[in-house]
């Protein structure tokens, strides 16, 4: 199938991208790696008048160490994320979840920022970003602002990015010492979206869990933080993980579709959270 016609702007800088978007407002779409957008264009499920290609903006590429945080350029590809040593060392959960995204060819084109800005609750990275308290640096006509992950994911395929704004980079707090992590993705075949995914990072101290961060994939219209489990896990030992994870489906409203009805997804969330936490904690 074949995309409808559109005009094309290749932005050389963030400012150029922002002004191109401002000019066309809601008729424009940002093109990052294109791995979500181009299939939508081909199926004619999206009809932008203008496509603003931000893929070559140098500032938006690469991963750098910023002390307490790693800063990941929005146009950093999945393949670069997976192989980046800094990221593996300080935010390994991101690299591990990214390995489960699509397939190698798609990961060569698809970008970290593009996945997050697309905000598909079935995508793997939003839940990870949420669990890790990532911060989103967004550029607009009035300059740049930083939005917390909790505020970034607004609804299904909807984020805090305004039509004339661009996601420039994502700041992720480094996990300090003593953390373990695990991404559990439950899917039908290798290429499929997650029916449910659980991103867990756990810090142990003195033989019990001191702190846990858990994000859920595809359990609602946005990624969801399993806060009830996080609180229940604090201070628990190996024997209490299962009971704490029974709260994993609290506050979720997963879809019922051909993948599974909501009650099955909630059941999976409990089982997979227990497994992710157990693995992350090294129990």
């Amino acid at each position: 199938m074949i995309p409808a016609q559109f005009d094309y702007v290749r932005a050389g800088s963030v400012d150029e991208a922002v002004s191109a978007l401002a000019e066309h407002d809601e008729d424009a779409k940002v093109l990052a790696g294109g791995q979500s957008l181009i299939p939508l264009l081909r199926l004619r499920l999206a009809y932008p008048e203008v496509v603003v290609d931000v893929g070559r903006i140098a500032e938006m590429h690469g991963i750098r160490d910023d002390g307490s945080h790693l800063v990941i350029g929005a146009m950093t590809t999945h393949a670069e994320v997976i192989t980046n040593e800094l990221l593996r060392r300080h935010c390994g959960l991101i690299a591990e979840a990214t390995e489960t995204v699509a397939d190698p060819a798609v990961r060569h084109r698809g970008t970290f920022g593009g996945s997050l800005a697309h905000a598909d609750p079935a995508g793997d990275l939003p839940a990870v970003a949420l669990a890790l308290d990532a911060e989103f640096v967004i550029a607009g006509a009035g300059g740049r602002r930083t939005v917390s992950a909790a505020d970034f994911f607004v609804d299904y395929l909807q984020t805090a990015i305004e039509p004339a704004e661009v996601l420039v980079e994502v700041r992720v707090p480094k996990l300090g010492d003593g953390w373990g992590y695990r991404y559990e993705k439950f899917q039908r075949v290798a290429q499929a979206w997650a029916i449910v995914g659980v991103a867990a990072a756990v810090r142990r101290s003195n033989g019990s869990i001191a702190e846990a961060r858990i994000g859920l994939t595809n359990m609602g219209s946005t990624p969801i933080r399993a806060s009830a489990v996080e609180s229940a896990l604090a201070g628990t030992g190996a024997g209490e993980v299962a009971a704490a994870c029974e709260a994993a489906a609290e506050g979720t409203s997963p879809p019922s579709d051909l993948n599974g009805k909501a009650d099955y997804r909630q059941h999976l969330a409990r089982v997979l959270t227990r497994r992710a936490v157990t693995a992350a904690a090294g129990y």
Partner: peptide, 29 residues
């Protein structure tokens, strides 16, 4: 199948290997 659960297939989980940051739980390298 009950309504809405005419499911697609499936049997696969894709679990990552999991991992650790440096240092043990006490922070020792």
């Amino acid at each position: 199948a009950a309504e809405g659960s005419i499911a697609w297939a499936g049997d696969r989980t894709e679990s990552t290997a999991g991992g650790r940051t440096e240092g043990d739980e006490t922070g020792a390298r």
